[in-house]
Amino acid sequence: MTQKFDFTVNGKPVSVALDNEETPLLNVLRNELDLMGTRFGCGLEQCGCCTVLIDGVPEKCCAKPVWSVAGKAVVTIEGLGTPQRPHPLQQAFIDEQAGQCGYCLSGIIVSAKALLDKNPSPTRAQIAQALDDNICRCGSHNRIMRAVEKAAAQLRAGAPS
């Protein structure tokens, strides 16, 4: 039986009609809403490629049933910034060339945003801890952590986010 699920994505209300209420939010984002920025990595909530904010909390959405986000606010990488108006994190990732293949970056940048929302002045160790749920296989870790530090400094200095 088709059911309707209402929630917001990047501030806009969305309504999706699905036969299977267990459909993972990730599949809804990618296949129903055409938001490809949130990547599939494992489907097991292990690698963090699919990290989004749900009511401000970083969560992996590859196994999160769509019914569980009804009425909630979802923010994806596309909701952070655009090439014309980059989020300070995105600008810092470009400045630091923080990435190799880039497949993990959407989830990492969203995890970093959740960290900076909560803690504007994280230490290197706190950044590492916050990103330990995200896997980077190419070995861009140090650049990524430098970019998060840089973005934190810019946000503290009043950069618009």
Partner: peptide
């Protein structure tokens, strides 16, 4: 030189084969 392919990945664009429809 800044990598030409990185911005698309940092902004979450459909850059990967997985994103082809």
């Amino acid at each position: 030189s800044a990598r030409l392919d990185l911005p698309g990945k940092i902004f979450g664009q459909a850059t990967f084969i997985h994103d082809m429809r």
